[in-house]
Design a protein around this nucleic acid. Structure first.
Length: 380
DNA sequence: AAACCGTGGTA
DNA sequence: TTACCAAGGTT
């Protein structure tokens, strides 16, 4: 579908920007990066907030900027520390890209966040949205932007009847945003549009009574705000059965570091893998352990079953205590780049995927685990 | 273009 | 409980 945006913007929409700016002045949340609009802070916040809830993002932002107050600090940090700061946020490539981009800033851009679009877009992890957000919010340049919030607000105000995820619709949305943008006000206009989407023009229950754009809103006039934006096609959720195990030796626990280019790249984990057809979880964990480490193990007591989801998968994670059959030499790693024998306390220094972090939390409260740590056959 | 990359909150 | 959702980017 092509949207004739030059015809759907009318003289009535002259009120759009003033109304929005006035509303934002009174309703902007006191977010930490809004204190000074430091470009480094804006950059970090924009990457963190991608596909992430505001409340969680703020907590991670505070910790990150305290530990890493500048691009050069990010550039010099080691990847394990970066991933630990990101643990639990998901989409871990974002953290790795922050590090790579910071190194480019240090090497080529005087250690600072670039001020022009082409240079920003060349940095890893920065796409059209984030480049426009940095340019408008940090540097007050007249750049329009469209994120999920803006798309929803505009789809309602202009009654767009195509899914906002489609390429043609995106193109129209960016054109609309550009046309509505008041010169010299991009910082507050763009943030106001997103803030309105987050606080008032919400996905399920828009609060039109509080909306400064209600008089302009075509979906509201037609009583179809719940049907705008129109939904795209949904992805199928695939159930996954995974088995993993905790191998203890001399009071220490075996962990390994995942390959960089894999899911959860660079994070630490307990070895394991998918339960195959006709296989029990116990058999799976023994087989996977042998494949990934060369260790011959036996599954002992089940620890618990953990449910968690990622992207389009729904995982049932079967967790077992393991014991080594033979003496343990160095592992022959096939699914990892490094391994460690860690104490319970040392586990906390490493970044784990959420499912495995849940397992660690369960272990810490499990009496059987503490007994195995101190009374296993191979106690030191 | 479409698949992939995580997670926890919410209705 | 399930399904959808959140300040996207990369391949």
């Amino acid at each position: 579908m092509t949207i004739p945006h030059d015809t759907i913007i009318t003289s009535a929409h002259k009120a759009f920007a003033p109304a929005l700016l006035h509303w934002f002045k009174d309703n902007a949340r006191p977010l930490p990066w809004r204190e000074s609009y430091d470009p480094y802070h804006v950059w970090i916040s924009e990457i963190m907030l991608q596909q992430t809830q505001m409340e969680r993002g703020v907590a991670y932002f505070e910790r990150w900027t305290r530990e890493l107050p500048s691009p050069s600090a990010v550039a010099q940090a080691n990847e394990d520390d970066i991933l630990k700061l990101w643990e639990g946020l998901g989409y871990y490539n974002r953290a790795r890209n922050l590090m790579r981009a910071a190194q480019i800033m240090v090497d080529s851009h005087d250690g600072w966040v670039p001020e022009d679009k082409a240079t920003l877009l060349a940095l890893p992890g920065i796409g059209p949205y984030t480049a426009a957000a940095i340019l408008s919010i940090a540097y007050e340049q007249d750049e329009p932007l469209v994120d999920g919030n803006v798309a929803r607000v505009l789809a309602r105000v202009f009654d767009l009847d195509a899914p906002v995820g489609e390429t043609a619709t995106q193109k129209a949305l960016w054109a609309l945003a550009a046309e509505l943008l008041p010169a010299g006000q991009a910082r507050n206009f763009n943030q106001g549009l997103m803030e309105l989407g987050a606080l008032v023009c919400k996905p399920r229950t828009p609060v039109c009574a509080n909306c400064p754009l209600a008089e302009l809103c075509e979906a509201r006039r037609l009583g179809i705000t719940e049907h705008r934006p129109v939904p795209g096609k949904k992805v199928d959720i695939t159930p996954l059965s995974i088995a993993t195990g905790v191998l203890i030796n001399k009071g220490r626990i075996f962990i390994q570091r995942r390959h960089e280019d894999d899911v959860w790249g660079g994070l630490w984990e307990f070895p394991g893998g998918g339960v195959e057809e006709g296989e029990t979880p116990e058999q799976a964990v023994v087989r996977e352990y042998a494949e990934e480490t060369g260790f011959e193990v036996v599954a002992q007591n089940p620890i618990r079953i953990i449910k968690h989801g990622y992207t389009r998968f729904r995982v049932t994670l079967h967790c077992f205590f393991l014991a080594a059959v033979n003496g343990l030499g160095p592992p022959a790693l096939t699914a990892a780049t490094a391994h460690k024998w860690a104490t319970l306390e040392e586990l906390d220094d490493h970044a784990f995927p959420a499912g495995h972090r849940k397992l660690i939390d369960a272990l810490a409260e499990d009496e059987r685990f503490h007994k195995l740590l101190t009374h296993s056959p191979n106690t030191p």
